[in-house]
């Protein structure tokens, strides 16, 4: 029984192959697991541990440091309201209050129908467009209470367009064609100067 679908397992192996040390793929693989399932399960962590050559406890140990990783069910739509300084000055906290009332949950809570999880988030780099929020990491800017209500109505009515389910970040993956790959450089197997540096050094010594 494996956690990853066979398509995702291929993606996972390719991600691991891009790093000199497999453990570096840990955070990308946790994202991949969350993309597949919406949150990170114990099975996912066991499989990621195998892929990275570490223990499941190490996977959890790293993963639990990062607040984007969820180790239990969350809503299909994660709403992150920014209340940091620039947003606070223009009503971020009031917006969060309104969101709590509208959804009937406290910050950190999930609605009974499993649709929405509400969180407050630290500065998400949209400070000139305050107050802002993200839904599954897609921005909405200069949000009023009305905007918020309409947004909730739209999502409940299925008018979500290109808004992916929670867990999906970039929908375009980097691919490196095999014939274009320069090569993954493990720290122990590349003690020589890279060719273009060596060539220039050699040319200098001839000229010099």
């Amino acid at each position: 029984m494996s956690f990853f679908t066979s398509a995702n397992l291929d993606i996972a192996r390719e991600i691991v192959s891009r790093y000199p040390v497999p453990r570096s793929a840990l955070i990308p693989l946790l994202h991949l697991a969350q993309e597949q399932h919406g949150w990170v399960t114990d099975d996912a962590m066991r499989e990621i541990a195998d892929l990275c050559g570490i223990t499941p406890a190490e996977v959890k140990g790293t993963g639990s440091f990062y607040e984007m990783f969820k180790f239990g069910p969350v809503g299909s739509y994660l709403i992150n309201v920014c209340t940091n300084i620039s947003c606070m000055l223009l009503g971020g906290e009031e917006l969060l209050d309104h969101a709590q009332q509208r959804l009937g949950v406290k910050t950190g809570g999930t609605t009974d129908d499993g649709m929405f999880t509400l969180e407050d988030v630290e500065c998400v780099a949209a400070c000139t467009e305050a107050p802002c929020l993200q839904v599954n990491y897609r921005y909405r800017l200069r949000v009023t209470n009305n905007d918020f209500d309409e947004m909730i109505d739209d999502i409940r009515a299925g008018r979500v367009d290109d808004l992916p389910q929670h867990g999906t970040l970039a929908r375009i993956r980097q691919r490196i064609p095999t014939d274009k790959l320069a090569g993954v450089v493990h720290p122990d197997d590349a003690r020589e100067a890279p060719v273009w540096l060596a060539r220039n050094a050699a040319e200098d010594s001839v000229v010099g």
């Binding site: 891009r18 955070i27 990308p28 984007m68 980097q174 090569g183």
Partner: peptide, 10 residues
């Protein structure tokens, strides 16, 4: 090679 990677909220 340039490898794109991303964090997870910290």
């Amino acid at each position: 090679d340039i490898v794109l990677t991303w964090g997870a909220g910290a």
